[in-house]
Structures are given as C-alpha cells and as structure tokens.
Simulated assay, not measured.
Amino acid sequence: MSPEQNRKILLILAIAVIAFNLRPSISAVGPLISEIRSDTGLSNSLLGMLTTLPVLAFGILSVFTPLFTKRLGTEGTMMLALIILTAGILLRVIPGSLMLFGGTIILGAGIALGNVLLPGIVKKQFPTKTGLVTGIYSGMLGIGAALSSGVSVPLSENAGFGWRWALGFWALFSSIAVLTWFPQLKRNFQVIAKRPLGNALKQLSQSGLAWNVSLFMGFQSFTFYIIIAWLPEVLQDRGISAMEAGWMLSLCQGMGVLGTFFMPAWAERLENQHIPILVLIILEILSLLWLMIPGTAFTGVIVSLLGFSMGGSFGMALLFIVLRTRDSDSANELSGISQSVGYTLAATGPALFGAVFDIAQVWTVPLGMLLLFSFLKLWSGWKAGDQAFV
C-alpha cells in the first residue's frame, strides 16, 4: 500500500477510536441511576440532568466550534476536545454533587467539539466514501454506548468499583483516543474560513432545508437521550432486575450499531432518503407502543427494534449533514448549527421525561410524549431527505 493509503487507514482507525469515546460517559449513567439516587438522594428531575447537561453543552458550544478551528486547526481542536473529555470524566470520581455535575458539563463540552468536527473531517478526507465512513464512526458511537450501558452495573457492583469509579473508568479509553489522535497533529493547519461565521449562520438560518436537518437531529437526539437515561428504570418497573435492565439497554444500543452502519450506507445510494426514514419511524412507534403495555414478554426483541431505529436515525442525521452540503466548510457549518439547534432541543428531554413521570407516576404518559416526537421526527426527516443542498 502507498503511504497515502496507510495514512487514510490510520485516520479511519483514529476516527473510530474517537467515536467510541463520545458516548460512554453519558450512556453509563442510566443503569446506575438507582445507585446514584440511593447514595446522593437526588430527585428524578436532577438525575435526568446528568444526561441533560452534556446535551445542553452540545447545543451551546456546537455553533462556536469554527472559532476554535480558526485558532487551533481542526486536528488541534479535536485534541483539545479529547483532553477536555478526559478531564471531565475524572472530575466525576471526586465525591460531591458539585464535582458530579461540574465534570458532566466539562465532558459535555469535549464531546460537543468532537461531534461537530467528525462530519467535516469525513467530508474532507473521504469525499467518495462518505456513507461508508459515516457508517463506521456512527457505528463506533453505538458500540461505545452499548458497551458502557452493559458493564456499568457489573463494574460498580461485581467489580466493587462503586458508581463513581464505574463512571470514571471510561477515562482510560479517552486517554487512548488522545494517543491515537496525536500523530494527526502533524497535518494540523489553521482553518481559513471562506466567509465570516456570522454570515454563514445567517445564510443557514434562512434555509428551510438546514432547519429540517437541524430539527431531525434534535428530535432523534431527544428520544435517544431519554431512552439511555430512563429505559432501565422503565424496564425495572415492568419486573426486570437492575442488571438485566442494564444489559437490555446494552442490547438496545448494540442493535443501534447495526442501524447506524446499515442505514447511511443504504440511504446514500438512493435518489432521496424518504423510505429509510419511514422504515425507522415505523419501528420506533411500534416499540414505544409495546413499552406502554405491562409485562416482560418479547423484551429483547422490542428493545432491539427500538435500538435499530434510534441508531439508524442518528446515522441518517449525520448523513444528512454530509449529503446536503457541497464541501467540507459547508459541512462544518451545517454540522455546527444543526447540532446546536438539535441538541439544545434534545437537552430538555431526560429531565422533562423524569419530571412528567414524577407528576403522572406512570410511564405511559412520558412514553406517549415520545410517540408525539416520533411523528415530528418523521415530518422533519422526510423534508431533510429531499435531494437538495443548503
């Protein structure tokens, strides 16, 4: 293989390792909710904030990512993101609610930068393989989320780590990501924006297509972060043990890996992306309806379908950023604004879901809220699936 081919393979590996690290610090929280509540006495609404705060950081910081790349370059900004992520994870090991929530905000800032940068890197480095590479890194996002969900309770209880070190354990892997990305700094160049950030944001804010991409990103994230925060609690209320509920969440996100890999690779070859969106939303609606019915029958099957739908929706949201833009600069700009708008919307989800349950005391009411968002997701995804450019 040529030196350039070797470089591209190493870059794909680095992208995959980074993607693996962008979800565990969030998805590890859900299975540990009961243990954290027992130890800290926090309410369901405050516990929901442990998932909400990182997503809120995504929403606030995503749009400002170009300001970092202008000063540090894309590769330098990614390195900063990984260091911030590692620091935030380690802060949560320190006793006290201030460190728990403060570390959560900090790691959210690191993830926000990484989220925005990856689509632009793919657009620039792999312009003829966008669907494949998007599927690879979105699949690794799902693998990281699935693994962290499944091993959180065993790490805390069986290995004796306790919930704090079960959350802090993932700093080991984010440190590996730092080392994996380090060679890419040799090719770090200052990003010269073709147009001022304000002008780019103004143009995108006037694009209906950009808004639909952003709303689809928000609606799918709204559902995703609610599920990873609260699915174990919902399943335990249906009669499943805490450890089994954690593994069911792991299965859900593991099936999401298939969705994130398969759906972008399929959808990229189509004239428009309407049919993939319709298939995903039908699966999601059927899964949510089943969760409203008491009992434990077919839990694995339904959770798998829900995971495939959520993973596929996330993969489609990332693919829309790439397909609806003409170059890497536009992809970075659309990525920033869509993730800012989308994650700001999604940030309300986990705490809202917990608050609605606190009021209703039954899971059918907050699950019904998710059904409504499924139809909103179908509407925005259908529009975003039109063959056009922002």
Score class of each variant (00 low, 15 high):
303 V>F: 00
329 D>W: 06
203 Q>V: 15
296 T>P: 00
244 E>V: 15
197 L>Q: 10
1 M>S: 15
357 F>W: 13
215 L>Y: 11
195 R>L: 11
147 L>P: 03
13 L>K: 06
142 G>A: 12
360 A>R: 08
65 T>K: 01
360 A>I: 13
4 E>R: 00
237 D>C: 05
349 G>N: 10
298 F>Q: 00
131 G>V: 09
329 D>A: 14
17 V>E: 01
295 G>E: 02
272 N>I: 05
123 K>D: 04
223 T>Y: 07
53 L>Q: 12
143 I>S: 07
264 P>V: 12
184 Q>S: 08
108 G>C: 00
378 L>E: 00
39 D>P: 12
105 I>D: 05
183 P>G: 12
321 I>E: 04
333 E>T: 11
204 L>C: 09
168 G>C: 14
148 S>T: 02
372 L>W: 03
214 S>E: 06
338 S>D: 12
72 L>S: 08
55 V>I: 09
390 V>W: 07
209 L>C: 05
1 M>C: 05
275 I>D: 04
336 G>H: 03
206 Q>Y: 14
103 G>Q: 10
62 S>W: 05
203 Q>S: 13
140 M>K: 09
280 L>E: 04
281 I>Y: 04
201 L>T: 12
379 W>E: 08
190 Q>E: 06
159 A>G: 10
313 S>T: 01
34 S>T: 13
383 K>E: 03
100 L>S: 12
152 S>P: 13
166 A>S: 15
138 S>E: 02
150 G>W: 09
111 I>F: 03
19 A>H: 09
157 E>G: 04
352 L>T: 15
346 A>M: 08
317 A>K: 06
84 I>H: 03
81 A>P: 02
291 L>T: 00
241 S>P: 10
21 N>Q: 10
145 A>Y: 01
368 G>M: 00
96 G>W: 00
8 K>E: 14
98 L>P: 05
257 V>P: 05
282 I>T: 15
281 I>N: 03
245 A>P: 02
200 A>I: 13
121 I>D: 05
248 M>N: 10
263 M>T: 15
304 S>R: 00
237 D>N: 14
70 K>N: 10
229 A>V: 14
261 F>E: 01
347 A>V: 13
68 F>S: 13
22 L>Q: 12
269 R>Y: 11
196 P>A: 09
111 I>G: 04
17 V>S: 03
353 F>T: 09
194 K>R: 07
323 L>A: 02
27 S>T: 15
196 P>L: 12
76 G>F: 03
135 G>R: 03
311 G>M: 10
379 W>L: 14
107 L>R: 09
327 D>Q: 05
128 T>I: 03
191 V>Y: 10
151 V>D: 07
390 V>K: 02
296 T>G: 01
171 A>L: 11
285 I>C: 11
248 M>I: 07
